[in-house]
Amino acid sequence: MFFGLTPDDNPRLKLLKNVVLFKDLSLRDLAVVDQMFHARHYLADEVIFDEGEEGQGLFVVLSGRVKITLPADVDTVLIELGPGAFFGEVALLDQSVRTAQARAIEDAEIVALFRTEFYSLLETHSSIASRISFQLARVLAARLRQAVLNTNRHHEAS
């Protein structure tokens, strides 16, 4: 992959533009981030990562579907993710272990952003990295708020 397309011609950039994390970035900025992605192809039923593994980065679904499950109860799907969704984002922030399993439901094109490369982006392109970090913080805050609401509802119900 030594030769790339210009930002306007690159179809992957157009897919990435739909990802919440990157919605504040221009195509030119996205081209900078795109140089840091590792593209992977997973077949249906292939495990992407397991619970308890040391997480190294964030995964973004470009095509296909992915399910997140707990190994103790693999039949109960916590969430299904389609194109434009991302998962494993906590590993972008620290070297913690994965708390669930990710598995492809159907063939999936996925890109991964490694933590050290994101740190390098913070050094070299702090403006781009700070916009991604801000979006990530908003997503995590929304999830936290939702978790608190769910807990409150659970307490009220019981």
């Binding site: 590792h38 992977r40 997973y42 292939e46 040391e54 190294q56 991964a112």
Partner: peptide, 10 residues
Amino acid sequence: PNAFFEKTLY
């Protein structure tokens, strides 16, 4: 290979 991907990056 995919299974070794994250650890190899490490």
